[in-house]
């Protein structure tokens, strides 16, 4: 199997609802076998993207390729090979959770009963209750069990854990890692950055319907400054004047600063001149990446106004 094979490929996709622009030239690439994190603030267009990928919405412009087909034209064929968990799960109030799981499974051409029962147990779901009485988390479990019990090669998960408790979230994470080990592809839209950091190989951050960052976590980190904390014998000189070093903070013999990878050599030179006693390097967390990006963007917009 070609590792680089594209399972999802979007180029310049646009979608508007009346005067509201939901997708504004979105690019997205997901390769086979990867768990791809799909991040963005509320209203950035994550769910619209997934609904376009499902052929529920029709794109206004741009190219979309899903599993080698067109999600609008080849919807039925493609859907045999994928499973979907919506962010806001709405179920038939008169059907029990078990009935819904079996129904969705049989639409995909049958369900592995052992796997289904195993997942019901792992997620501690009571399948005998009517969907009307389920809480948000339980409705989500129904959709998750139905999706995970299928043998779909692609999973489209739209904030699948937003209603789950931490225990169930870790069950979910185990399941996703099992999927990955089986070579399946997962597009995971999420707000839980720790989850994305733990599960995802690559990440796309979108904002206002456009991809603003795309890459592996390591690549994204490289684009952002890491934080360094050094203890020196003498006060450090000339750090702040180095291009690419910022947020220098001196407290006695301890100096904290942020540096781009390109500026690191010069920065460490200045530090060494002061006699290093200890050094602690901290790569940015995804949360910092995320906040920094949106913080900057928000700031720029505020300036513009």
């Amino acid at each position: 199997m070609d590792v680089q094979e594209q399972v999802i490929r979007l180029r310049g996709v646009r979608k508007s609802f009346g005067s509201t622009v939901a997708l504004d030239g979105l690019d997205l690439d997901v390769s086979r076998g990867e768990v791809h994190g799909f991040l963005g603030p509320n209203g950035a267009g994550k769910s619209v993207t997934i609904r376009v990928l499902l052929g529920l919405l029709r794109r206004d412009a741009g190219e979309v390729e899903l599993l080698g087909g067109d999600p609008w034209r080849d919807a039925v064929e493609l859907h045999r090979r994928l499973a979907y968990v919506p962010g806001d799960v709405s179920l038939w109030p008169g059907l029990s959770g078990g009935e819904v799981i079996d129904l969705l499974g049989s639409l995909r051409g049958g369900i592995d009963r052992r796997r289904r029962d195993d997942l019901v147990e792992r997620f501690e779901l009571d399948p005998r209750k009517k969907a009307a009485t389920y809480s948000k988390g339980n409705r989500q479990k129904v959709a998750l069990v139905a999706a995970l019990a299928s043998d779909a090669e692609l999973l489209l998960l739209d904030e699948p854990t937003s209603g789950l408790d931490p225990l169930m979230e870790s069950v979910f994470q185990d399941c996703v890692l099992e999927m990955k080990a089986e070579g399946r592809t997962v597009l995971l839209s999420s707000h839980i950055l720790a989850e994305v950091e733990k599960l995802c190989d690559r990440v796309t951050i979108i904002r206002r319907g456009r991809a603003v960052e795309q890459g592996t976590l390591a690549e994204l980190r490289r684009m952002t400054r890491s934080t360094y904390r050094v203890e020196t014998e003498r006060p450090v000189d000339g750090l702040a004047s180095i291009d690419g070093v910022a947020a220098v903070h001196v407290e006695g013999r301890t100096t904290v600063f942020e540096a781009d990878d390109a500026a690191l050599d010069a920065a460490l030179g200045a530090v060494r001149a002061a006699g290093v006693r200890s050094l602690l390097a901290q790569p940015p967390t995804l949360e910092e990446l995320f906040l920094r990006h949106y913080g900057d963007a928000a700031a720029t917009e505020a300036d513009r106004r």
């Binding site: 499902l54 052929g55 859907h79 979907y84 806001d88 709405s90 639409l107 995909r108 959709a143 489209l156």
Partner: peptide, 15 residues
């Protein structure tokens, strides 16, 4: 409009 067509149409079920 309640979103209950989505899970069916996300399965191999045509409109």
């Amino acid at each position: 409009s309640a979103g209950r067509a989505d899970p069916l149409l996300a399965a191999p079920v045509s409109r």
